[in-house]
Design a protein around this nucleic acid. Structure first.
Lengths: 178, 178
DNA sequence: CCTTGACCTTCCAATCGTGGGAAGGTTTAT
DNA sequence: ATAAACCTTCCCACGATTGGAAGGTCAAGG
């Protein structure tokens, strides 16, 4: 089976199959005389495993762990469960972070008239001066913000931001054919 | 104020300030004779605006829109609200997606003994053959089952994965005196 | 004055997972 | 024979961010 068929059968694109091979997530498969990759049903099975893990949000590193555990028939289910639960915690953390952002923003939008008047609490909060409570001097680049529009937002300086395992608020995907 | 102070005062790293300038999100500031960037309070105010928007998960493109609206004192609050609500929807969609993954995985983990026995529903689900869930639970690739399944699944990319907000790239990339 | 260290500058690379595309070879069907 | 549809490798792009190298500048202390 060539890479195109394997991609179709597994749901992993040919591009990604080559990529997974290049980073060592999957072994190199045999080649035809012409150099075409040749996939067995077993290989496709592994690719489907990968696709399902990916659909559950596992990273490549985690998938490598899971694949190793999959092939180790004597491994303890506790090992798999540990990885899964760690991942669950991570997914929940990211989801919570997104929900917090969403709620903050929805709250602000809820207080915004949304008509043709310029006053807007969303912009107001974004343009608040840090020391706005005690002074509120020069505040806008041209003229816009009103320091009076304080919605409840306990904004601290901490910015855990999205690290390597972080949230990745967007994932790209130029809308091509989906 | 040099870039280090501006970074400290705004919460945006010097690296990112230069990056934002390079892509045209913020204008080029004046320079000292030695070529050092020199930031005014107004510039720092704009950077803080950017940091807050970023902390709310807005993309660079969205921040550009918000900045434009911020500086347009006559803009309708409806325009700001629209951007905010679109972003809220996007954040919620992503959060839901993560929660779904999390719940699926938590459910599987809940059914996993998590002891030293090898049987594990998490691995089982990942390695399931399409169309032979009932009884076909070979889990190691060595014993790749030929469940007779060429069951074509034209999902091709079942998971919408993370998508873009639909905001056009507009690519103003690198120093392009565009 | 000179040195030192902290700062600044630009440029280049890497991350992560994925897709796009070019240049060239192979297979298959007409 | 020829064209379409594959395959191969290699490079580039994305988003947002960080890291680092090579070199210039500034403020302090000796």
């Amino acid at each position: 089976m060539n890479i195109g068929k394997a991609a179709e059968a597994s749901g992993v694109s040919a591009k990604m199959i080559r990529y997974y091979e290049s980073i060592g997530l999957i072994p190199e498969v045999s080649r035809t005389e012409a150099g075409y990759r040749d996939y067995s049903d077993k290989d496709v099975h592994r690719l489907r495993f990968i696709r399902r893990a990916r659909d559950l949000g596992f990273s490549v590193d985690q998938m490598a762990e899971l694949l190793a555990l999959w092939q180790d028939r004597g491994r303890a289910s506790a090992d798999v469960k540990r990885i899964a639960l760690e991942h669950v915690a991570e997914l929940e953390r990211k989801a919570r972070e997104l929900m917090e952002m969403s709620q903050t923003l929805a709250h602000l939008a809820g207080n915004c008239h949304g008509d043709d008047r310029p006053d807007c609490p969303i912009i107001n909060v974004l343009s608040e001066q840090d020391g706005c409570e005690d002074g509120c001097k020069d505040r806008e680049p041209d003229a816009a913000g009103h320091c009076g529009g304080k919605a409840d937002q306990s904004h601290e300086h901490a910015q855990p931001r999205f690290g390597k395992t972080g949230i990745e608020p967007d994932r790209k995907r130029r809308h091509g054919s989906d």
